[in-house]
Nucleic acid binder design. Structure first.
Lengths: 209, 209
DNA sequence: GATATTGTGTAACATTAGTTACAGATAGAG
DNA sequence: CTCTATCTGTAACTAATGTTACACAATATC
C-alpha cells in the first residue's frame, strides 16, 4: 500500500521528501464496493487520493435525484474536497466506491503548507483541478448535446474504460440513477442496444461487445 | 481603468508590488457588446481579468449547438484560459462580451512565476478556479434537474443579477442559443411566464417583475 | 423447496420538448 | 414613406422521454 502511494506520487513528480511526509501524516482507508465515502452535507477533514479501485462522484439535488459527475481512478484525487475544505464549505455531492478501493487520506491542515512550499505539489493539485474541470465539461456536453440513447452508450463505454473490464455488473436501476432517468427507460434503451448488437444483457450484468 | 484594476486586485488581497507588475506587463482591451473575445480552437496567450462589463462563457459542440456555462463579472477571471495555456491545450469554448466591457489582459508567461512567488496570487487563482467549478456544478444542476420552464426563468433571474438590471435586451433566438433549445420553444415559455405575471415582453426586451 | 425480494421486459399512455409553417408586428435602411 | 430584415405569436404536428402497471425470471432467505 505504501508502495502504490509512493509510485503514484513519484509518478506525479513529487519529491521523496514530501512523499515521506505524506506517508507519515496520512492514513490508509479501505472501502468495499458500494460503500459511501463522502456524504452530502458533511465537511471532510481529509483529501482522499485513490490508490486502488474506483470511486464515483455524484451530484444530488434536494429531492433524491442524482447524476454521475465523473469517476476517480487510481492516482487521482478529489479536488472538490480540497476546495470544499479550504473555503470551509459543505460538500454537496457524494462519493461512493464502485469497486473495492484503497485510499490515502491526507489531513486538510497540511494542504496549505505543502501548496506553499512544494512546486510539485502545487502542480499536482492544479493538474487535478484541471482534470476535474475537463471532466465536468464533458459531462455537460453529454447531458446537453446527446440524446439518452447515445448518453447511455457513452456511459457504458466510459465505465468499461474506467474499470478496464468489458463486463459491467450493475442493475438497470443503478444505471438509471447515474443518468438521472428511470429504470424503465434504461431497460428500453439497453434492449435497443442489444438488438443492435452493441451489448449483451444478463441479470446484473452487461457485456460490451 | 488603471484605477479599477488596482481596486479589484487589492480587494482580492494582492499586494501593491504585484499589482504594479500586473499593471506594467498587462494591456487593456475594450470589447463592444456582442464582440467575440475568445474563439473556440484558439490558444490564447493572455489571461483576461474583467474590469468592467460582463462576459459570457459558452460551450459548443462540433455542430453549432451551444450552451451557456456562466458569466464573468467585474473582478473575475477566466480560469479556463489559464489552465488551457499552462497545459498548452486548445480552448473549446467561446467568450463573448454581453455588455460593453473592459478587460485587463495578462500575458500567460508571467503566471507560473507569480503563482510561485505570491501567496495572494495563488489564492486568487485558486479561488477563481473554485468559483468556476461551483458555477459549472450549478449549470449541471439546472440542465439536469430542472425542466425548461424553470431553467428559462432561472436564466432570466441570473441575467438580471449579473447585469444588475431588471431589463434584459435580448431576442428570443439569443436566449434559445444559451439554453440549447429552439426559438419557438423559448417564445412559448416566455409567453407562459408573462401570462403568469412573472415578466413583461416587448420586442428585444424582457422586464423581470 | 416454499417464499420473499429484486431484477427485467414490455405495453399503454402522459408529458415535455422539438419542428415546421405561416401570419403579423416592429424597427432600420434607403 | 416604402421596402426589407428581423422578431414574435401561435397552431399543428412529431419525437423523445417519463410514468404506470403488470407479468415473469432469477436469486436470496428461511
Amino acid at each position: 500500500m505504501q508502495e502504490s502511494l509512493k509510485s503514484i506520487l513519484s509518478e506525479a513528480g513529487i519529491e521523496d521528501e514530501l512523499i515521506q511526509e505524506i506517508q507519515k501524516v496520512g492514513i490508509s482507508k479501505t472501502a468495499r464496493s458500494g460503500e459511501l465515502i463522502i456524504t452530502p452535507g458533511s465537511t471532510s477533514m481529509y483529501m482522499p487520493i485513490v490508490l486502488e479501485g474506483l470511486l464515483s462522484v455524484v451530484r444530488q439535488d434536494g429531492d433524491a435525484n442524482e447524476i454521475l459527475l465523473y469517476y476517480l481512478e487510481g492516482g487521482e484525487t478529489c479536488a472538490m474536497s480540497l476546495a470544499c475544505c479550504i473555503e470551509g464549505k459543505r460538500n454537496d455531492f457524494k462519493v461512493t466506491a464502485e469497486d473495492n478501493s484503497v485510499l490515502w487520506m491526507i489531513p486538510m491542515n497540511y494542504m496549505d503548507e505543502w501548496i506553499q512550499n512544494y512546486r510539485s505539489f502545487r502542480k499536482y493539485v492544479f493538474s487535478s483541478y484541471q482534470t476535474r474541470f475537463d471532466e465536468l465539461l464533458e459531462t455537460i456536453d453529454s447531458i446537453t448535446f446527446l440524446n439518452l440513447y447515445d448518453r447511455l452508450y457513452k456511459y457504458l463505454l466510459d465505465k468499461k474504460q474506467a474499470t478496464k473490464s468489458y463486463e459491467i455488473n450493475m442493475s438497470h436501476e443503478q444505471i438509471a440513477q447515474h443518468l438521472n432517468t428511470s429504470r424503465v427507460v434504461v431497460s428500453r434503451l439497453l434492449k435497443q442496444l442489444e438488438n443492435e448488437g452493441k451489448i449483451e444483457l444478463e441479470r446484473n450484468r452487461i457485456s460490451i461487445l
